[in-house]
Amino acid sequence: MGKKVLIIDDSSTMRKIVTRSLRQAGLDFDTILEAGDGQEALQLLAKESVDIILSDINMPNMDGIEFLRQKSANAAIKSIPVVMITTEAGADILAEAKSLGAKGSIKKPFTPEQVSEVLGGLM
């Protein structure tokens, strides 16, 4: 109860789709925060604490990989689990994300059940 999630994606429509999936997955988030890129996410994380982060990879200003890098270098937010959302990221990118601390990935298209499966184990 009372959990907070942060969705990072440059498409506001995609953020809405993820929000809808979380709701249908029955994941009980009290608060859903949104950021349009990695930089915005870091600024938000400086003042808000969240339980889990869902992040796109290709984004303007700061992409998902650079976000992971900066996050893992910041002791205050280092331990928040991050799950990547991708369309067609190759194994190399996903391996890099993992080496930078990403806890999992969800490939589009995804069902609410898949979201629940990946996130469930992390909460």
Binding site: D10, T13, G36, N58, M59
Partner: peptide
């Protein structure tokens, strides 16, 4: 006569 083109937000 009348159409529009939209992209999702892009880097460039």
């Amino acid at each position: 006569d009348s159409y529009s083109l939209d992209y999702q937000p892009q880097q460039g």
